[in-house]
C-alpha cells in the first residue's frame, strides 16, 4: 500500500499549492472556454460535421476538456525542471520514497490540476447550453478518467524534461506533441469522417480513447466502448510511467 500512500502525499501537496494560488486555474481556463463559446457555436452553425444528432458544441466539450488536460500535464514537466534546478528533487531522492513513486507521484499531481480545470469548464459549458448527463456517478467517472489520463501525459513531460534542459525548448516541444495529437483525434470530428490514414493514426492515439470515454460519460451515455477505452488508457499510463522512470535517471545526473 505504500506506493499508493506516496502518490496520495504528492496529490495533497498539489492541492495545497492550488489552495494558495488559484489564479493559475482561472487563467488556464481562458483558452478552453474560448473553444467552447466561439469555435463550438460557429462551427455548429455551419452544420458541416455529422455528429449523430448531438449539437456540435456538446460534441466537442469532452474534446476541449481533454485538450486542456493534455496541455496542463505536458507543461507539468516545467515544474519537474524547476524542482531539479532547485534542490527539491535531490532531497526527495534521499527520502525513503522509491524513485518510481517519485515519478508517478509527481505525474499524478498534474491530475489534480486537470480535474480542477474540468470543474471550471463543465459549469461554463452547461451555462451556454451543453447538456451534460445528469448522473453524478457518470460525472465522477469522467473526473476519474481525466485524473488518470493526466498522469500519462505528465509522464511524457517528465521524459521530455530529461532530454530538454531549457524551458523555452520545452514549451515548443509540448505544443508540437499535443496539437497534432488533438487534431488527429476524435475531439473535433467523428472518426468516420477522417481519411483512412488519419483513421489508422486515431486508433493508436491515446487522446481518442480518452475523448471517447469522457464523451460517453458526459454526453452520449453510451458506455459500450468504455471498457476498451479504460484498458487503452491504462496501457498508455503504464507505458509512459515506465519510460519516465527510465529517463528519470538522466534528470538527476
Amino acid at each position: 500500500m505504500t506506493p499508493l500512500r506516496d502518490v496520495v502525499v504528492m496529490v495533497e501537496l498539489e492541492l495545497r499549492r492550488i489552495r494558495h494560488d488559484r489564479a493559475e486555474l482561472y487563467t488556464r481556463a481562458v483558452q478552453p472556454v474560448l473553444w467552447l463559446v466561439v469555435f463550438g457555436p460557429v462551427m455548429g452553425a455551419l452544420r458541416a460535421i455529422p455528429t449523430g444528432g448531438i449539437p456540435y458544441t456538446d460534441f466537442i466539450t469532452p474534446g476541449i476538456i481533454v485538450q486542456s488536460m493534455a496541455f496542463i500535464s505536458i507543461f507539468f514537466g516545467l515544474t519537474v525542471i524547476w524542482e531539479r534546478e532547485s534542490g527539491i528533487l535531490k532531497k526527495l531522492l534521499v527520502t525513503p520514497l522509491p524513485r518510481s513513486s517519485i515519478v508517478i507521484g509527481r505525474s499524478m499531481s498534474s491530475g489534480v490540476r486537470s480535474t480542477f480545470q474540468m470543474l471550471i469548464i463543465v459549469p461554463i459549458a452547461m451555462l451556454i447550453g451543453v447538456r451534460i448527463i445528469p448522473n453524478p456517478l457518470y460525472f465522477l467517472g469522467a473526473l476519474a478518467i481525466i485524473f488518470l489520463a493526466s498522469g500519462g501525459f505528465a509522464a511524457i513531460s517528465v521524459f521530455i524534461a530529461s532530454i530538454m534542459k531549457s524551458r523555452e525548448r520545452f514549451m515548443g516541444i509540448g505544443q508540437a506533441i499535443i496539437m497534432p495529437l488533438f487534431f488527429a483525434s476524435n475531439a473535433l470530428y467523428p472518426v468516420e469522417m477522417m481519411p483512412p490514414i488519419l483513421k489508422a493514426l486515431s486508433s493508436v492515439n491515446p487522446l481518442s480513447y480518452i475523448v471517447d470515454a469522457v464523451r460517453s460519460l458526459l454526453i452520449t451515455g453510451d458506455l459500450a466502448q468504455l471498457p476498451m477505452d479504460i484498458v487503452a488508457i491504462a496501457i498508455f499510463d503504464i507505458a509512459m510511467f515506465i519510460i519516465a522512470s527510465i529517463s528519470f535517471k538522466r534528470i538527476i545526473k
Partner: peptide
C-alpha cells in the same frame, strides 16, 4: 540549493515530509 516548495507554508513543507 534551495530545497523547499515556496508556494506553500513552512508548516506545510514539514507536513509533506512528515507524511513521506
Amino acid at each position: 540549493e534551495m530545497s523547499v516548495w515556496t508556494d506553500i507554508t513552512g508548516y506545510e513543507n514539514m507536513l509533506i515530509y512528515a507524511k513521506i
